[in-house]
């Protein structure tokens, strides 16, 4: 047991910075991101026997992403109930702009789905096919979502560089 526990310890210690960072990118809130990352690890530990032989980080990442969907879902129900369905961006927690990194402020301009695709593709460096599989959507949807998101962010994928990158 100690050996497997130690395996989990090593995994958790190694994965924490990435989980925490990705949760922060998704939520824009430091405290929330800690909670999400911790809960994702808890659930991974709960199923460690099942997932440890496979890709524990993939499992944990998926739990984290879904936890955030749940969080947003609760808010969405609230806003739908309040007749405010038009709200487009429900994902980033309400914190003052000065409290966020620039990158998080930029990501806040995206819809939650766009942000999720961007984080999985460009933070976790997953292929578009893997992102599609992980989110249960078509590869073409990933591609178009990414294109739309990067356009919003003014990140030109084909530009050679130096000048304006993104605001």
């Amino acid at each position: 047991m100690a050996g497997r526990d130690q395996e989990f310890d090593e995994f958790a210690l190694a994965a924490w910075p990435r989980l925490h960072r990705s949760a922060y990118l998704l939520t824009g809130d430091h405290h929330l991101s800690e909670d999400l990352a911790q809960t994702a690890l808890e659930r991974t530990y709960a199923k460690w026997r099942t997932v440890r032989r496979d890709d524990a980080l993939a499992y944990c990442r998926r739990v984290l992403v879904n936890l955030n969907v749940d969080r947003i879902r609760r808010r969405r129900f609230f806003e739908v109930g309040g007749g405010a369905l038009a709200h487009a961006d429900l994902g980033v927690a309400d914190v003052g702009p000065d409290d966020r990194d620039l990158i998080v402020r930029l990501l806040a301009e995206l819809t939650e789905r766009e942000r999720r695709v961007v984080v999985l593709r460009h933070y976790y460096d997953l292929s578009e096919a893997t992102v599609a599989q992980e989110l249960g959507i078509a590869p073409g949807t990933v591609k178009s979502t990414l294109a739309r998101a990067l356009t919003k962010l003014r990140v030109r994928v084909d530009a050679p560089v130096e000048e304006e990158i993104y605001p």
Binding site: F8, A12, W16, R21, V118, Y123, L153, I165, Y166
Partner: peptide, 27 residues
């Protein structure tokens, strides 16, 4: 490229570490 710079910003410079107390709580 802008995309590389963007990706670099996404990566950030996270210094977050999992302290033993939180790890114990996780388990």
């Amino acid at each position: 490229t802008p995309l590389e710079l963007f990706t670099e910003d996404l990566q950030g410079h996270s210094t977050a570490s999992l302290d033993p107390q939180r790890l114990a709580e996780v388990k």
